[in-house]
Structures are given as C-alpha cells and as structure tokens.
C-alpha cells in the first residue's frame, strides 16, 4: 500500500477546473517530484492534499485512511506536513516560536525537545537565530525555518512547494541537499518544483502536470532524458 494515494482528483476554483482527475501514488521512503509550468496545478494539488482546498471529486488516502474531507488541522496530526510556497513563516514571531508552532499537535514535551535538537542539528543556522523574529531572516534562512517547522510535527510525509523559489544558487543546492538528508532519515517527500532539473536530480520518480492533467510519469532519470521534458522543462 502506498503511503499517499491520489485517485481521480478533481478540483475547481469557482467554475475553473484546476485539476481534471489526476491520479498518482507516493510510496514510503520515496522522493516524488511534481513538475510543470506555472498554472499547471502543482500548488493546487498540494493544497488539496493538505485540506486547504476542497476536492470536488476523487479521493486522497494517507496510509490507507481517506483524508479527502478531513480538515487541514487534523491532517497534520495524521503525519503529513506541508512547507508552503513562499515559506509563509510567521514573520512577527521568533524563530523558536515558529518551530514550536510546528509541534502544535504534539503533546509529549520530551519528544518535542528531541525533535527540536534534531532540527537544530540539521539547520545549525536556525539555532543561532532562535530569538530573532522570522521576518528578519534572509530568504534562504526562512526556507530553512519553514522546513524545520514542518519537521517539528514529526511527519511521515512532507510536502514541499517550490523550496528553491527566489533563492540564490548557493542556497538552492543547500536546500536540495537537506531535502535528500531528510528523506534519508526516513521521511517521504513530495516535491513541487519549477526548477525541474534540480527536482529530477534528487527524485526517485516524477509526474509532469500540464493544465490540470498528468501528461507524463516515470522514473526521474528516465524523464530527465525524455525529449519532451528536455524541451519543455529543462531548457535543452
């Protein structure tokens, strides 16, 4: 059984059909990339999975449980974290407060402290800035904070929306290295990226979205050499 199963998912914005019945699976331990142009429906897909947008038809299953109609706040405690596009850290709150909000659904103080140590280990720069308000961090640091905050819920799967957006190339490489590390430590990753080259370089498999449909699917290495993908997304 796949960890995340999306079946014939349809989503509308008013009368606009944003997702036209997409289906895909994410197996435990994988990094899955969802690539596509602006407006293809990548962010919509993630928002629907985490309950920020309602699905019109189809189903979403997390670890076998149907979460299609579950409210966003409940899905977090079922083991899914979402690093939203544009980071959306709480700019007025401190780095530490942001991280602790990530653990909002958890009760055990000792376990939270252990996860916090783990996040510090992965993002030493955050530890240096605990008392700073998140709004004063650089874009790359905010991305790290958003990722650290998501890890604080101890998710089995983490959804990342455009983690490289607006970052300098140096930060992009660092962020992608960290995504791989997080994955190696046992967290499944569903990655949405416009930077298709980078995404395909770390993913196991990938799906290509075009105007609300999945038009291509396969191993990341295969897609990397696919003529269509090369032309449209890799700029070759």
């Amino acid at each position: 059984m796949a960890l995340l199963e999306i079946d014939k998912l349809e989503v509308y914005y008013g009368s606009i059909n944003a997702l036209k019945g997409i289906s895909f699976n994410v197996e435990r331990g994988e990094i899955i990339a969802l690539i596509g142009a602006n407006g293809a429906g990548k962010t919509t897909t993630l928002h629907t999975i985490t309950g920020l947008l309602p699905a019109k038809k189809g189903s979403i299953k997390l670890d076998g449980h149907d979460i299609t109609k579950a409210p966003a706040h409940r899905i977090v405690s079922m083991g899914m974290a979402h690093v939203p596009e544009g980071r959306r850290v709480f700019a007025q709150l401190t780095v530490y407060e942001n991280l602790m909000l990530g653990a909002y659904t958890r009760k055990d103080k000792d376990e939270i402290a252990a996860t916090l140590e783990n996040v510090y280990y992965r993002f030493p720069r955050l530890k240096e800035r605990l008392k700073q308000t998140a709004g004063t961090l650089s874009g790359g640091e905010q991305q790290m904070l958003a990722m650290g905050r998501a890890l604080m819920s101890k998710p089995s799967i983490i959804l990342m929306d455009e983690p490289s957006m607006g970052l300098s190339p140096l930060y992009v490489s660092e962020i992608f290295d960290i995504i791989q590390e997080i994955n190696k430590a046992g967290t499944t990753v569903l990655l949405v990226e416009q930077n298709a080259k980078k995404a395909l370089s770390i993913a196991n498999r990938a799906y290509v979205l075009e105007t609300g449909n999945i038009v291509l699917a396969g191993d990341a290495s295969e897609l990397m050499n696919n003529e269509q993908v090369k032309k449209a997304y890799l700029g070759e």
Binding site: T50, G51, L52, P71, A72, H73, R74, V76, S77, A81, H82, P84, R88, V89, F90, L101, G102, Y104, T105, R149, A150, S153
Partner: peptide
C-alpha cells in the same frame, strides 16, 4: 492558512 498547516 499557514496556521492550519501547523494543525491549528
């Protein structure tokens, strides 16, 4: 929205 993603 971000608050919801924290489980709030």
């Amino acid at each position: 929205g971000a608050a919801q993603l924290m489980g709030i």
